[in-house]
Design a protein around this nucleic acid. Structure first.
Lengths: 231, 231
DNA sequence: AAGGAAGATAACATGCCCGTCATGTCGACG
DNA sequence: CGTCGACATGACGGGCATGTTATCTTCCTT
């Protein structure tokens, strides 16, 4: 099946970069536009399954773009709004947006919303993904956000679960710390890289029987971390 | 349309009482059973749209009951498990449960899970409920769990949002403090009633322009609180 | 085998949510 | 109109999630 095509409209290069990277990782085809006019041209010049649309745009505001698109299309639209921006009418869907997200967000959130919106619009297409992932005696329920190890529930914090989800849904893939910060943290996070180490450690303490000899999350020296289901 | 029928199986009267009350409030018909044998008899003696099933039961364990039901029915089943109980196989759905919840839970959670499971099983029946509720210039998005007031986002904590959700989806209904503790708090909460007052206050501070003259959440003297959309 | 870089670990700091308590204020009713 | 009980408010403290820093350990390179 062809990849889903996403039109990403934002004038902040940082956001475009981060989202493009992660969405392409997930098998979306991403086209981007940096202002309202570009967005309109791109949209009507192509075929898209979803539009991610910043509200505050040069030339033509996201709301206007949204309305213009809605005049001729029912494509799912997710609006991106800066915190504190006046969101009247967006949420109420008067302009036809299907969902919105407040900046700053993290990429995992965006991906989750995209899936929800696509599923709701019926255009999901993608085979229904696994809700429960098992690796040996670990079970991760992505709906519940719960984890059991040998049948016993393990309590993870939000970040720990996000990390585990990233790893377990991309087994074998090595993630650098930058990578993880880009995906699991909000995109405006500018803190220390060691933060990742510490979260990995805490996660390991909860899911590994022996943190010195992990069974799930491995260290790739000089690169980052990865998850494996091989013994 | 006829009410959804729920079979509630648990041997702890406190749980049965609390869930029964809240579910009936929401328009479910609730029948209950206190042990495994009763459960089987009740189930095959009637018609149910959903089963809530404690794992630890006298006479016949919840897992056995689940299996027996599955031999002849695909009714949605949500298992209730005590913390730390061995959940192998339950989550993996080997015995055919559709979801599970770890005790202690709060009633709002249970209701949310019930809706999800019913929707998933296609038996939802109920008209798709509103995802966004508007009262004057307040918008509450139950999917996002976000609230805007005159277009500006208001950040609520989990409990604050739960309270608001309870109120706004039952406008005009007066809730006593016991009532709220039963619904929004976990059922084993045994603390002070004043706790409710404080949460109401904090919620008011965020959504009321003037807490002394509320527009949304009113005090019913000697009884409790209620939400109204009237001016 | 030694040294240095990278990772693991421990300890601490901060911020937020939540519950409790003490005190202030208000509303119902005699 | 005064009193008492109920509600509102302010302040405090515990607990948890998260991030930072310092120190120890391990692994790779030479």
């Amino acid at each position: 099946m062809a990849n889903k095509r996403v039109l990403l409209v934002d004038d902040e290069p940082l956001i475009v970069k981060g989202l493009r990277f992660s969405l392409e990782q997930d098998g979306y085809d991403v086209e981007s536009a940096a202002d309202g006019e570009e967005a309109i041209n791109a949209f009507f010049g192509g075929q898209f399954d979803l539009v991610l649309l910043d509200v505050m745009l040069p030339k033509l505001s996201g709301i206007e773009v949204c309305q213009r698109i809605r005049e001729r299309s029912t494509v799912p639209i997710i609006m991106l709004t800066a915190k504190g921006e006046d969101m009247d009418k967006i949420l109420g869907l008067e302009y036809g947006a299907d969902d919105y997200m407040t900046k700053p967000f993290n990429v995992l959130e965006v991906k989750a919303r995209i899936k929800t919106v696509l599923r709701r619009s019926g255009a999901s297409g993608a085979a229904e993904e696994k809700r429960v992932i098992r690796v040996r005696d670990m079970e991760v329920n992505l709906v519940n956000r719960s984890v059991t190890l040998a049948g016993k529930e393990v309590k993870l914090t939000a970040k720990e679960f996000d990390l585990l989800q990233l790893f377990i849904t991309n087994r074998g893939k090595v993630y650098s710390r930058e990578n993880m910060l880009e995906t699991v943290w909000k995109y405006d996070y500018l803190g220390d890289m060691r933060t990742v180490d510490v979260h990995i450690r805490r996660l390991r303490e909860k899911i590994e029987r022996n943190t010195a000899q992990p069974e799930f999350i491995f260290t790739k020296w000089g690169v980052g971390y990865y998850f494996t289901d091989k013994d």
